[in-house]
Amino acid sequence: MTQLNDPSALATSLPEGEMAKLPVGLGAPQVVGYQVSPRRAALRRFFRYRLAIVGLIMLSAILLMALFAPLLTPWPPNWVDFSTGARQPPDAAHVLGTDVSARDIWARVLYGGRTSIIVGFGAVALYLIIGTLLGLAAGYYGRFVDQAIMRFTDTIMAIPPLLLIIVFVAVVGPSIASVIVVIGLLGWPVTARLVRGQLLVLRESEFITAAHVVGVPDRTILLRHMLPNILGPLTVVATFGVATAVLLESSLSFLGLGVRPPEASWGNLITEAVSPVVLTRLPWQWVPAAIAITTTVLAVNFIGDGLRDAIDPRATKRA
């Protein structure tokens, strides 16, 4: 799927013929400027760096909270607290109140974070593997293999992602596993393009030519020399991919096509707010989950921005 949060992913998300139309390195940070004093440039780098640090801290906090959820709340996420009752406002026992089924909302937000994180990282890991393998195959073998893989990639990219995911989830039935698999199976094109593009550049580079000359076998060149060189850009794609996957999972769960109801997910916590009375009178039921999603995605985007700045070769050269 297209990663619209990441301007630098654009070059890799275009159909092939159109890449030529883009200025090289579109979206890469513009560090050098005619009007910028070195001090300001440094300030800006620092600012960017700081945001990435902030993002990293935010994400670590969220990860830790999800991981140590049982330590942060005495309530299991599906426990019905009959003594308190449903739809109760926040108090000492239930810091964010209870939901329509008398379950603790804070616990559901914490455990819902696990769902989002598992889907976010799981789906991205899956499509990184698929995308890297296809990209390596296309870039390395070239010719017919390349053409076939790239045409297939174009096709997948022309389909609106959410729509295709809805279709596939309907086929396999909603669950965490199917959401991961479906996002994974549809999300690989960006990775494949990126890997292939990098590989084409690398193939012409001097050290690969040198390796060929001294008789290093193909497979070794591919795995030992080429793959490490594309790890950087892959990390950037993966980071923004996590943001996209978290948003997708929450959308699917919101529509009732993601995680199955008794299980907590940020998306299905917010679904309750389509009821007018919940939306207007019981904000504690949905606002925390909304904040959780936005914070997570924002943190990942900050990290992605920072990583991109750090990894982009032009940025480092000019710095």
């Binding site: 599906n78 426990w79 089924s101 008398a102 039935g173 909603p174 009732g256 199955r260 109801p261």
Partner: peptide, 25 residues
């Protein structure tokens, strides 16, 4: 169904049934 299902599950688990809620479209 979805609002009261967790309560039913909890009562049934209290008597020793291993309950799996299957909520489907």
């Amino acid at each position: 169904f979805t609002v009261t299902a967790p309560a039913l599950q909890q009562y049934l688990e209290a008597i020793g049934l291993k309950v799996e809620l299957t909520a489907l479209p």
